[in-house]
Amino acid sequence: MSETLAPEKVATENVAVMNQLAGRGVRAESPLYHAGLDKLSALNPRAGGVLLRELKLLGHLTLRGSQKNASFMNGCAEVLGLALPTLPLTSVEKGGVSIRWISPDEWLVVLPADQAYEVERGLRAAIEGHFSVVNVSGGQTILELSGPNACDVLKKSTVLDVHPSQFPVGKVAGTVFAKSTALVRRSGEASWELVIRRSFADYVWLWLQDASREYGLVIKS
């Protein structure tokens, strides 16, 4: 029987799982490494309306599974220490781990990079049935925008309604962002996180510099 017809029957033991973290002595470069954000933050201590920080080199795991699979839901809660948010467009956070709802059967788990391998193996051991966990850490990065004008920069960049009445703290939405895409999360009263693709990181970085120029952009490390 093909796996298309009976995906739930396919054993997951053939999946190759590897620790994607580079070993000691290997320089890890975030998607915005070339921008030299640390250097910019050091020579750029002035005030401005928009603060930008790359939450770089974190572990990103894409989780997919059915909410009807109790083993999946329980296994995730057990291994992650947090239940998957089932309400659309919500997120949960505890300690260094955050989980963003992406669709009814997809979530993004962000956690410290050195925990990603262990957590991935833990999930594979704990969950039975049809599910998927993929380490996508190298494929994307997170930019944090904060400050009094962060919201104004978002309004220039996305079609989302980011008014506080429509976008409470903790809300998550995948959307178009500056003709690219981003997973937007309001992480605090005046702070926002954008999960962006590695290949678009430079473009978004250039876009954000331009969009925040009139308010003053401060790079934080």
């Binding site: 659309p88 467009l89 669709s103 009814p104 079609v159 989302l160 939405a173 995948g174 959307t175 178009v176």
Partner: peptide, 10 residues
């Protein structure tokens, strides 16, 4: 699935 109105662009 998202259970809200969004722009056509998405």
């Amino acid at each position: 699935h998202c259970r809200e109105l969004r722009e056509e662009e998405e």
